[in-house]
C-alpha cells in the first residue's frame, strides 16, 4: 500500500495563481521521500492539501488508502505534520503543547502524558517541559514541533523545511532522529532547501517546479542523471598554472587548489593516473557542490530557459 497517493492534483488560488497543475505522486510505505523545488514551486501547497490546511481544486489524495474526500478523519489520523512556519502557542508550556496535541487525536490524558514524556525525552526537551514555548530557542521550537507531530504515533510524517534556521549541530541530531524513526517504520516526506540534507537522508526524490513534477525517481537513479561533476583537489605542492590532463577540464583556483570537471563516462581512476603522470600530488578532494544541488540547479535553469523561450516565441507570434 502507498503511504501517500496523489492523482491529478490541481490547485488554483482565488487570485488565479495555478500552484499545482495536475501532479501525480506516490510515496511507498516506509520510504524517506524528498519533495524538492524552488520557492513558490507548489511544495507547501501540496503538503497543505494532504494535511487539509489547503482546499484542493480537483484531484485525488489518499493516505494509506484513505481518501481525504470520503475518509478525512482516518487519513488525518495517519499523518503527523511539521509545518514550515513556527505555529506553536507561544504561551503554552512545552509539556502542554504536546499533551494537547495528543488530546486532539483522542488520546486519553494519562496515555497522552506518557507519550509526551517519551517524545520530549527523545528530542531532548524533557528538561524544558515547564517552560513556555516562546522562551525556547529557534532550534528547540523546531524540535518541539517535531515532538508535537509524533505524539500520536503517525504512520506518515510530513516535514516542511524542519531544519530551516537551525544550527548544524542540531540539524545533524535531527537527521539522526529522523533516520531512527524511519528505520522503525515511519514513512517520512521531507521538503528542504538544504539539498545535502535530502541527499543524505532520502531514498526517493521528487522535484516540483511551477506546479509540475519534473523528476520523480529513486535518489540513486536521479543522481546518475548528472552528466558531470566538479571536484576540488587540494594539492601538496603549489602550482603556477593548471596542468594539462588528457580528457579533463582543469582550472586553477589558487596555488594549492584545482577544479576538475569529470564527465559521467569518465572515472576517478583515470583522473588520478593523469594527475600522477603530470606529477601532481593530491592530498584531499571534495565535490565543488552537492550532487543533488548541481542537478537541481541545472534542472530548474533548463525549465526556466524553456519557459523564457516559449515566452519569446509567443511574443514573436503576436
Amino acid at each position: 500500500m502507498h503511504a501517500l497517493a496523489i492523482r491529478s492534483l490541481w490547485k488554483t488560488y482565488p487570485n488565479g495563481v495555478e500552484a499545482l497543475k495536475g501532479i501525480d505522486l506516490k510515496v511507498e510505505e516506509g520510504d524517506f521521500f524528498a519533495l524538492l523545488g524552488p520557492n513558490g514551486a507548489g511544495k507547501t501547497t501540496a503538503i497543505g492539501i494532504v494535511t487539509s490546511l489547503v482546499n484542493k481544486t480537483s484531484g485525488d489524495v489518499k493516505v494509506f488508502g484513505h481518501s481525504i474526500d470520503s475518509e478525512l478523519e482516518a487519513a488525518k489520523a495517519c499523518i503527523g505534520v511539521v509545518p514550515q512556519e513556527l505555529n506553536l502557542n507561544q504561551w503554552d508550556k512545552v509539556f502542554n503543547c504536546v499533551v494537547n496535541q495528543a488530546g486532539f487525536y483522542g488520546i486519553p490524558r494519562r496515555e497522552a502524558r506518557e507519550r509526551t514524556e517519551t517524545v520530549l525525552r527523545e528530542l531532548q526537551l524533557w528538561d524544558r517541559r515547564g517552560e513556555t514555548a516562546r522562551n525556547l530557542s529557534g532550534g528547540m521550537k523546531r524540535r518541539l514541533m517535531i515532538a508535537r507531530s509524533l505524539v500520536h504515533g503517525p504512520k506518515l510524517l510530513i516535514l516542511d523545511e524542519p531544519t530551516a534556521g537551525v544550527d548544524i549541530e542540531i540539524r545533524r541530531s535531527m537527521w539522526d532522529f529522523l533516520q531512527t524513526i524511519n528505520r522503525n517504520g515511519t514513512t517520512i516526506i521531507l521538503t528542504t532547501h538544504y539539498l545535502e540534507e535530502a541527499e543524505n537522508l532520502c531514498r526517493h526524490v521528487a522535484i516540483i517546479d511551477d506546479g509540475v513534477i519534473v523528476e520523480d525517481d529513486r535518489m540513486s537513479a536521479v543522481l546518475r542523471k548528472l552528466h558531470h561533476e566538479v571536484f576540488v583537489l587540494n594539492l601538496r605542492q603549489p602550482v603556477d598554472v593548471a596542468p594539462k590532463l588528457n580528457g579533463f577540464d582543469v582550472e586553477r583556483v589558487n596555488e594549492h587548489e584545482l577544479e576538475v570537471q569529470i564527465h559521467k563516462d569518465q572515472d576517478l581512476n583515470s583522473l588520478f593516473t593523469a594527475l600522477s603522470t603530470a606529477g601532481v600530488e593530491v592530498i584531499s578532494m571534495r565535490n565543488k557542490t552537492n550532487r543533488l544541488e548541481e542537478l537541481f540547479v541545472r534542472l530548474i535553469e533548463r525549465r526556466e530557459n524553456e519557459r523564457n523561450r516559449e515566452k519569446v516565441v509567443e511574443e514573436l507570434n503576436l
Binding site: L53, L86, N87, N89, Q101
Partner: peptide, 11 residues
C-alpha cells in the same frame, strides 16, 4: 499565531 492548525490537521 497559526496554532489553530494543531486542531485542523488532527482528526
Amino acid at each position: 499565531q497559526g496554532h489553530l492548525q494543531e486542531m485542523i490537521v488532527a482528526p
